[in-house]
Every structure is written in C-alpha cells, then in structure tokens.
Design a protein around this nucleic acid. Structure first.
Lengths: 240, 240
DNA sequence: GCAAAAGTGTTGTCCTTACACCCATGC
DNA sequence: GCATGGGTGTAAGGACAACACTTTTGC
C-alpha cells in the first residue's frame, strides 16, 4: 500500500459518523390474512388530519438501538399480540415528500398470518381487515407499498411455501386452492392442482376430515416444513 | 367514525415527525462486472483504520433531500463516471453494530455494468475490480451484503434479461453462455443454451462476426429490449 | 333422492435433456 | 493440415394442460 494511503486513514470512526446527516426511519407492515376466500390486509384509519378517513398500514418508528426486523416484529406484536409471525423485508421507500411531516424513509415488511388464530385485541383507530382487491386510496404512499408487497407475495408464493402461513395448521386442499386462486387472481384446475401438491410430497394427511360443511367433507392436511427444508432443490433454468 | 377518534387526530405532522428518532442512512453499491470469463465486483480499500487493508463496497451517506435511488446513482456516477447504469435496490441492512462509528443503516443496491465501456477514472483507495469467487473477508458487513446481492443476481438472471448489462452491446453466444456459467456456477450444454435463446427470439443477428479470435469467429448478437418488454409473459406456476 | 363438493386417470403436447458430427478460421 | 471453437438436429423422457365421471356427505 502506498504511503499516501496511510495519511488519509480515518482513525475516529465515531467522529466520522457524527458528521453524517440523519433521517427519520420507520417500518411499515403489510399484514396479509385470508378469510372468506379473499386476501385481506390489516389496516387502521390514519391519525393524521391530512389523511382523515384514509386507511393506513401499521407502522412505527425504528428505535435507536433496534434492528429493522425487530421493529417490524414489535409492530406486529403490539397490533396483533402475535409473535413468530412470517415477516420479510420487502423494500425501502424514500420519496422525499412521502410524509407530510418531513423526510421519513420507511422500510416495508410483508407479513402473513392466519386470521382465525387470533382475535384483534386492540381495535384503536378502527383496526381491521380489509379486502385487498377493493382497496383504492390510502394515506401516505401506502397504496404503493401495499402494491409492491402484493406483487412480492404473488411471485414468492409460486416459488416458496409461504401460503401455509395464511391457513390454519390443518387445511383442506380446497382451502389451499382457494388461497392460490385468490392471491394469483386466476382459476386453477382442481385435479392438476392436487396432483401438483401431492407430487411435491410435502403434505401430510392428518386422517381428519373437515367438519361443519354442508357437503362431503374433505381431508385435512398439514404442511411438512421440515421435509421441505431438507429437500430444497437448486433449480437452474433460464426463462424470461 | 366515533367522536373519540377525532380527539386524537394529529394536526401538526411536522411536529410529530420532529419527535421521531433519527438514524444515519447510507447506500452501498455492489457493482458487478464481467471480464476474463469471471464475475467481478468493484471495490476500494476501506479508509477506516479499524478495517485497514480490508475491501469495502462503494457507498455514501444519503443526503438530506435525496432519494435512495438517487444516492445510489450518485455513488455510481462519482466512482465510475457512468450514468444510466442498471441499478436495483436489494435490501436494507440494519445490524446495530454493523458500523464501528455508531448506528448506521444502509440500503444495498445491485448494479451491473460493462467493464469495457469505461476506464476507471479515479482510482483512489485502490479502486478496482475483484473476482467475486475468491473474495473472503471484507470491511463492515460488506461480505454479507455482497453475498445477498450475488444471490439476488443469480436468481434474477434466470428470470429476467439482466445479464446483457454486463456484456458489450454486441456479443457472441459463447460470451453470453460464459456469463451465465460464471454467475450460476454451472456448466451448460452449448446446443441447448443456443436453442433456448433463439427460441425466446430476443436476439438480433447483427451480421457482424467476432474479430481477434484465434479460431472460427462467432456471430455477434444484440438483445432486443423493446421486443422483450412487449412480450413479457405472465407466468403462473407453482414450484418449490 | 338431490344438491354440492370430494376424489380420481388418461392422453396429447410441449419443454428439457442428452448427445456427436461437420464447418470455418487462424496459424 | 491441424487445432480450436462455431454451428447444427434428433430422440427420449418428464412436466403440464385439458378433460368427465363416480363417491360421499348433509339436508
């Protein structure tokens, strides 16, 4: 290394960082659920007067010594009372004017949970589940964030077994198919759908049957996450 | 809406945001290139004494009224002199101790460019191209960021025509195949590879041939981005 | 017994894979 | 003329798409 390099070495990293500009940083969670054969998202009314009546994602500031994932976990825990929820970072949004109160950068998270597993505890600000399809305007850039997370979900659900997070532990194949059809917004052939999932061999027949249905009850299955993890294939293909 | 809601409405958004905690925010660019049939990444020596001798990604703070994409563009322009470079946000990294100078959140970008298109202008801090495969330790959490961007690239290149950003405008099929083999770390069958790309019908025969090769020269092709954009297919399938 | 959904197989088509020989050029 | 990589075709196997009838249960 040339001597000239050493001269410019920075010894005091703390001093260096102190000179950096700072921004307000938040997380916003797009929390998806599945009910009545429709994809739902958990929203509250915005508490900003500017956005009076508009719907808003669940979010919060990132605390001083908190990682982004932890902040998103915390938002989820505070709002739904649930831990160990499927939660993935999707994208940062940084439009300078995205918040009327000033410069706020936000990191969007996509979360999937089973609506039936929990009752909403705190229903401040009309917290409740909204049908994704019929959702129009939202506060801030939250519609844009929702759209990004929805696209993300549509893509991911075709490549990874995320969908099971939206269903009860035990589910019928009809429910599973309804889930895929709702999320992907397509109709699928029932026989081919079943063949596909059976051939993947990750479904476990629980031996139980649906109850409270007005017709022939379907078998209930569980997803074998362990088996899936062990057999993840490395796919090589070119397709675009 | 119940009356109780109105009471809690926030009128002064600016005041609200002023109360939010702030963090230091940076962008880091993983700039990939392709040369000598190897995937390369553009790095500098860290200028922090703590990381003396270690390699570091190209990054910078995000300015006060600057979007993340713009900050990444700026880093690229400053370091390579290039604009209109392929550049996508990949992921935010927020480990509390990831920077020795204090809490710094960074957003990673993946960038693809054609090494031949530009000579490195400023070679401060030993800026230069590194073979990805042989890269071990790096400053900060930059190895982790690089790995994340590399995985992202491996996945994306199979689904979208990104690879062409790493090649000259006109390229031979051999070069294209070498690119895929290097990035995916596999060997591909030459005949099947050619068939695949020809059947997609996005390659335009320029009528030109390779020069300066010691054997029969191959045809040079261009990628037809317009045609690709127009025929993007919506793929529905379940596969995991 | 009827309504409603569960459950099941086959066939044709297409895509993927594996594989070997001749061709054009530089030296 | 020989070494080097360019260029091409075919056949087999596997995945996917299309399609209809019987079975079980609730009422």
């Amino acid at each position: 290394m040339p001597a000239s390099q050493k001269v410019t070495m920075i010894q005091d990293a703390v001093q260096l960082v102190k000179g950096y500009p700072q921004v307000h940083l938040t997380v916003d969670c797009v929390i998806f659920g599945f009910d009545e054969n429709k994809l739902k998202v958990l929203l509250i009314r915005s508490d900003l007067e500017t956005y009076q009546g508009k719907w808003s994602l669940l979010g919060d500031v990132v605390h001083e010594n908190e990682e982004l994932d932890a902040a998103a976990d915390r938002v989820l825990l505070e709002r739904t009372g649930m831990t160990n929820v499927y939660l993935k970072q999707v994208q940062a949004f940084s439009r300078v004017d995205r918040h009327p109160g000033g410069r706020v950068v936000t990191v969007a998270y996509c979360s999937l949970l089973n609506i039936r597993d929990h009752e909403l505890q705190i229903t401040d600000n009309e917290l409740h589940w909204h049908t994704v399809k019929t959702l129009k305007e939202m506060a801030f850039d939250h519609k844009e964030i929702l759209d990004a997370c929805y696209s993300w979900l549509q893509k991911r659900i075709q490549e990874h077994p995320l969908g099971f997070n939206l269903l009860p532990e035990k589910f019928s194949l009809r429910e599973l198919q309804n889930l895929y059809e709702a999320i992907l917004n397509v109709e699928l052939d029932r026989r081919n759908f079943r063949k596909k999932f059976f051939s993947m061999d990750f479904l476990v027949d629980t031996g139980e049957l649906e109850t409270d249905v007005k017709h022939r009850p379907g078998k209930l299955y569980q997803f074998n996450f362990d088996k899936y993890e062990k057999s993840k294939r490395k796919w090589i293909g070119i397709d675009f």
